[in-house]
Amino acid sequence: MTQSSHGLTTGAVARRLGVAPTTLRTWDRRYGIGPAAREDGRHRRWTPGDIAVLHEMCRLTSSGIPPAEAARAALAGPAPAPATRPAPAVAALAPVGPEPLPRPTRRPGSGNGLPLGAVRQECRGLGRAAVRLDAWAVDEMLGSVIDQYGLVTAWEEVMAPTLHAVGRKWETSGDRYVEVEHLLSWHVSSALRRAAGPPASGARTGVPPVLLACVPGEQHTLALEALAAGLAGLGLPTLMFGAAVPPEALDQAVRRTGPAAVVLWSQARSTANHPLARHLAEVAWGVKGARARPAVLTAGPGWAGQPLSPGTLRPHGLREALALLRGLCDAAAGVGADTGRPAGADQS
């Protein structure tokens, strides 16, 4: 039995909230957030009032507030709900200065052991929720930072730093924290796709698409998903090919669609494929005397420190990539009708 006349057991409450039972016991021992009643003087039984305090504790810690401070606030009762803020306009995704996030916090130990350093408070809350496998809190926080600050700032100042910290923790902890990285990556991907919405159609906009692909051997796609969401916010069509795309497939995709640009993502120097970048930059289409070629953007840390290949560009970060691609798409849309785009081009 998980429920009695006195309320729910710790295990049942943990399942309901999506947290570990040990977390609830720790909060009880350290901060006094425990059940009002104990069956036979030993077994914890959580009443609806107790669970309401726990909900508030989870909400506050997920927002980046240190546990001790969150516990005091939760025991004092929930604060009045803030006024609803409307979602940002598409312009918030453009490469212009968005509303800044709050100042970084340096509270020691408030990231559940993750190597976060001096980061935004939202990073600590997101990392804490991910470490305790609180899927609901992770999802809520990701949606909140995108809605409040815009996609670019949310990615560059909250999502990416937290993902890097979880990855570093995994690399230095043996087999531990793999589940944390997988959970966080899945929810970040889901949040980015929700932010992107349905794909824009080049056939309707008159803009050739942007091809997004990881180089052969590269499995990390989240940065490309952030770029796809940003391009969607600007109304620009994309073709996302995802991880480890074979060279032959990329060549055929470029020839079939006549894109404005191709973005090649490389996370590690071992995967950066310079011959592929040079080849794609030389693919041409169109009538004689009006041939067109795609711009090739070599994006990601794998390309760093290497000379640029002819016909390629290297953006530094999501904001700069969006600015470059918006200009390239505008230029391609202006001349696309005169370059004899391949059959099927502008179809996304």
Rank of each mutant, 00 (worst) to 15 (best):
L297I: 00
S190T: 12
A191N: 09
T26H: 10
W285Y: 09
P86L: 04
V335I: 10
P310D: 14
P66L: 06
A14N: 05
E225V: 00
S348H: 15
V145C: 08
A333D: 02
A129G: 14
S4M: 05
G305N: 06
V283P: 01
A331N: 09
K288H: 14
H279Q: 13
A20N: 15
P209D: 13
L126A: 11
R103C: 07
P315V: 01
S144T: 12
T153E: 14
A295V: 10
R291A: 14
T238H: 04
P216I: 10
S348F: 12
A268V: 12
A20R: 11
A196M: 04
R193C: 03
A249G: 12
R326S: 13
P208T: 08
V188P: 10
A94Y: 15
M57R: 04
A154G: 10
L324E: 11
G206D: 02
V287R: 14
G344E: 08
W186S: 10
L264R: 01
T221M: 04
V90Y: 11
A81Q: 08
L236K: 02
G11R: 10
G32P: 05
A81G: 03
V254A: 10
L318A: 07
L280D: 08
Y149C: 02
P80S: 09
G117P: 02
V53H: 03
A229T: 01
P199I: 02
D346C: 11
T162F: 05
R29G: 13
D50M: 04
A20D: 15
A71W: 13
E171I: 01
R128E: 15
A321F: 02
A292F: 12
R256Q: 12
W303S: 01
E56S: 00
A165H: 14
G317Y: 11
G111W: 09
A137F: 03
D175W: 07
W136N: 09
R44V: 14
R132V: 14
R45C: 14
R176I: 00
A261E: 06
A232N: 13
Y177G: 00
V262A: 03
V283F: 04
V210F: 04
D134G: 12
T10F: 12
S173I: 06
S270M: 02
L54S: 05
L224D: 13
T10Q: 11
R30L: 13
V207C: 10
E56W: 00
V180C: 08
V158F: 10
H6Q: 14
A243N: 01
R204S: 12
